[in-house]
């Protein structure tokens, strides 16, 4: 099924798996970018008094990332529950 052959290793590349890995990578990159953007919005004031993160901003970022991921997880669980309930029950 796989038509892509690597000349050096002579191993077949499973394109379907590659596409899935790419999708997964894109998902994590996108998630990261969205966290950066949301948490910047919420934690960094628009008045730039200094170039460094101060204590409050740093703590805010830590908590913001944790919370974003938690929301991400609970949405995932909920969606899985809904989609799982459909075909099975």
């Amino acid at each position: 099924m796989s038509f892509f052959m690597n000349s050096s290793a002579n191993q077949t590349v499973n394109m379907q798996n590659m596409a899935m890995a790419e999708q997964e990578l894109d998902m994590f990159t996108d998630l990261f970018n969205r966290i950066v953007s949301s948490c910047h919005e919420k934690c960094i004031p628009k008045t730039y008094i200094e170039g460094d993160l101060n204590k409050g901003e740093a703590v805010c970022i830590d908590r913001c990332v944790a919370k974003f991921l938690e929301v991400n997880k609970s949405v995932g669980a909920k969606l899985q529950q809904i989609s799982g309930a459909g075909p099975n029950a």
Binding site: F32, I35, V36, C39, H40, C43, I44, Y48, E50, G51, D52, L53, E57, A58, I61, D62, V65, A66, L69
Partner: peptide, 14 residues
Amino acid sequence: DKFMKHAERVNQRY
């Protein structure tokens, strides 16, 4: 400066 440091910190936690 702040944006870079911000992204770096998010990356660490992530």
